[in-house]
């Protein structure tokens, strides 16, 4: 078999959007390899209508590995079930999301299966003459990009950041095969157990926001944040920050956008005082529209922006806020 697999994820009985983002990326690989695209969904039992969404979005086969014990993510049984599937069906490629789940189960399973695993890929492709998976990711703190191959070990496994691409669009009536699998009880044994859960509130806002303002070290100090909040309010935008800002304690980690924080894919991204180091860009460069405001005309951020203002943010932002507010009044 030379199948291409994606590892789907669910939360509270609903498939996560990232599963459909993975399907879209993996469809390109399956097409180039002329192979089937399969989705693996491990968890508590899901209704057929829910699993069928994977088929409508491009999966030729869905392997649903289901047991009540798999309701919450649990590394040992999830990895054991994945390894069993790998042994049985011998996929060529497995792509998962670089979520807390994907980043845990993939290495655990890759170690057991002696498979190659590449984290946080920004680009995936198939090498024309060998059919190997080309995995490109930022390296050395984002200063360079590295393309990585897994020449011999199988499967070739990779994770990609959630929100780093659009989800696949469903085609109603698309057909595929649904295979439900009941794992053996010995594979469900685990030394860990989820005993509680507290839902987050504001953190989700940033990742799913249509507009985001990102601040960098250029805002100079935390005391300048009220001005930024005012801009966020005027735009209706969520607030993100670079690692520099978070490391200085000006904003908390849930605000961090970039290689070591969140990846966002909003309609508008306004970056303020952000230098544009590659690890920062990795978190936001796929935004539809990017505005950059920075005092340094050489700042890297201008290379990914659609429109750039070289100037003092303390002069530009208040004027922009006023303009937006006046604009709304005249509407």
């Amino acid at each position: 078999m030379s199948d291409v697999w994606i590892l789907s994820e669910q939360f509270n009985g609903q498939l996560e959007t990232v599963a459909f983002e993975l399907l879209k990326r993996a469809a390109v690989l399956a097409e180039k390899k002329k192979s089937r695209l399969c989705a693996v969904q491990i968890g508590a039992e899901l209704p057929e209508s829910e699993l069928n969404r994977l088929i409508e979005c491009g999966a030729d086969v869905v392997f649903a590995v289901e047991a009540p014990e798999l309701k919450d993510f649990n590394p040992e049984p999830y990895a054991a079930c994945l390894v069993d599937l790998i042994e049985q069906y011998q996929p060529e490629i497995i792509i998962a999301a670089a979520t807390t789940t994907g980043r845990t189960v993939m290495p655990y399973a890759a170690m057991s299966a002696h498979a190659g695993l590449t984290a946080d890929c920004t680009e995936l492709d198939i090498e024309a003459d060998t059919g190997l998976l080309l995995q490109t990711r930022p390296a050395i703190g984002g200063n360079i990009m590295a393309t990585i191959k897994t020449p011999e070990c199988r499967p070739q496994m990779a994770t990609v950041r959630p929100h780093s691409g659009r989800p696949a669009v469903p085609q109603s009536g698309r057909s595929g095969e649904l295979i439900r699998i009941k794992p053996n009880a010995t594979r469900l044994k685990s030394q860990t157990k989820v005993i509680g859960f507290e839902a987050a509130t504001d953190e989700l806002l940033l990742q799913d926001a249509e507009k985001v303002v990102i601040v960098g070290r250029g805002i100079k100090r935390a005391e300048n944040l009220p001005l930024i909040y005012e801009l966020c309010d005027a735009l209706g935008a969520a607030l993100g920050a670079t690692r520099d800002v978070v490391d200085r304690g000006w904003l908390s980690y849930p605000h961090q956008v970039g290689l070591s924080g969140k990846t966002i894919n909003p309609k508008l991204c306004v970056s303020i005082g952000v230098s544009g180091a590659i690890q920062q860009l990795a978190g936001m460069q796929t935004a539809d529209n990017i505005i950059a405001i920075n005092t340094d005309p050489e700042a890297q951020i201008f290379k990914v922006a659609d429109i750039g203002i070289v100037g003092d943010l303390f002069e530009v932002i208040p004027a922009l806020i006023e303009k937006i507010k006046n604009g709304e009044l005249s509407c």
Binding site: P138, A139, I148, K149, K303, V304
Partner: peptide, 24 residues
């Protein structure tokens, strides 16, 4: 013994055409 190999290292290229305005 390592399954993965780095086959290429390159500087990321950035692609947007930025319209620059100076606010001095």
């Amino acid at each position: 013994g390592s399954p993965t190999r780095v086959v290429k290292i390159f500087r990321p290229k950035v692609t947007r055409e930025c319209e620059i305005h100076t606010a001095e």
